[in-house]
């Protein structure tokens, strides 16, 4: 049907351009992986020999473990709270119409569009005013502000595929609002809820700027990486980078499988 652009050369060129784009996007991730196993201290080609010495160096560094512990602690907390807040806001949008709704939605979706340096400064100034800066809780608070909108967007997308009459049907059959929530809404939204948990954890896991501003001594792993970057070149960053990539990619891939998989089911079902 799409027969403008039949020219072979153009067809090939465009497809090649897609590959080139992906090469650009994934090159740094691949390079980090390759050079984490390289014996040379200073990355250059030709490569040195295969070596796991940098992995050993990282694994035996107590600072890295401390950062990782902070990151995981913060990430889990942030994921759970953000998902709850995001679900509530998405459900509010799905179910209710009220004046000021667009302001409510803006508030629930805007934070990730504010540059992180500005958010970081504002959080630092505000949290230190109420004696909450320089702790893990400061990072958690700030990350929930950034992550809850992602959870909201994901859940909202899922709920928008739901027939609003389903909930009403449950009420008519005698279910209370709460049990309709438990037996109709939550089961339907569950792929999005898990997807939101994974995505928000990935976002928190990678967020370094706001965390850098507010964390004080309780640095998360990405903040430690920022510290390493300010020092000298070290293949250790590649090791940590590879580790971080593997974790966040796993989380994001899981989330995507959950979300798109069920969406396709729904589409297939509605096509019948």
């Amino acid at each position: 049907m799409n027969d403008f652009n039949r020219n072979r050369f153009v067809e090939f060129g465009l497809r090649f351009y897609i590959l080139l784009s992906f090469a650009f996007v994934f090159a740094p991730i691949a390079a980090s992986f390759v050079f984490s196993f390289n014996s040379d201290r200073f990355p250059s080609i030709p490569l040195g020999t295969f070596s796991t010495e940098w992995y050993v160096a990282v694994a035996t560094d107590p600072l890295v473990w401390e950062g990782l512990r902070n990151t995981l602690f913060v990430g889990l907390f942030v994921a759970v709270v953000s998902t709850i807040l995001g679900f509530g806001a998405a459900y509010t949008d799905f179910r209710y119409r009220f004046s000021g709704k667009s302001a409510y939605l803006a508030l629930a979706l805007l934070p990730p569009t504010i540059p992180v340096v500005i958010l970081g400064l504002a959080m630092l100034a505000f949290l230190s005013r109420i004696n909450l800066s320089g702790q893990s809780i400061s990072v958690i608070i700030a990350h929930i502000v950034i992550c809850a909108p992602f959870a909201m967007a994901i859940t909202r997308l899922r709920l928008s595929q739901m027939d609003p009459d389903l909930e009403a049907a449950a009420w008519n059959l005698g279910a209370s609002e709460w049990s309709a929530m438990r037996h109709v809404i939550i089961p339907f939204a569950s792929p999005a809820i898990f997807g939101a948990l994974f995505i928000t954890m990935a976002v928190s896991f990678d967020e370094f700027a706001v965390a850098w501003f507010v964390s004080g001594l309780n640095e998360t792993l990405p903040v430690k990486v920022l510290g390493f970057l300010q020092g000298q070149v070290s293949p250790r960053i590649n090791v940590i980078g590879t580790f971080v990539f593997v974790i966040s990619m796993t989380l994001v891939i899981f989330a995507q499988l959950l979300l798109t998989g069920r969406t396709m089911d729904a589409r297939a079902a509605s096509d019948d």
Binding site: F22, V25, P28, S32, P222, V225, L229, N238, F245, Q256
Partner: peptide
């Protein structure tokens, strides 16, 4: 699917990696 992945993977480390290039 593939384009969504890098959006959520550490920008900081990817920038460091560009230094290698």
């Amino acid at each position: 699917f593939l384009m969504v992945i890098p959006f959520f993977t550490s920008y900081l480390v990817r920038v460091y990696s560009w230094q290698i290039f």
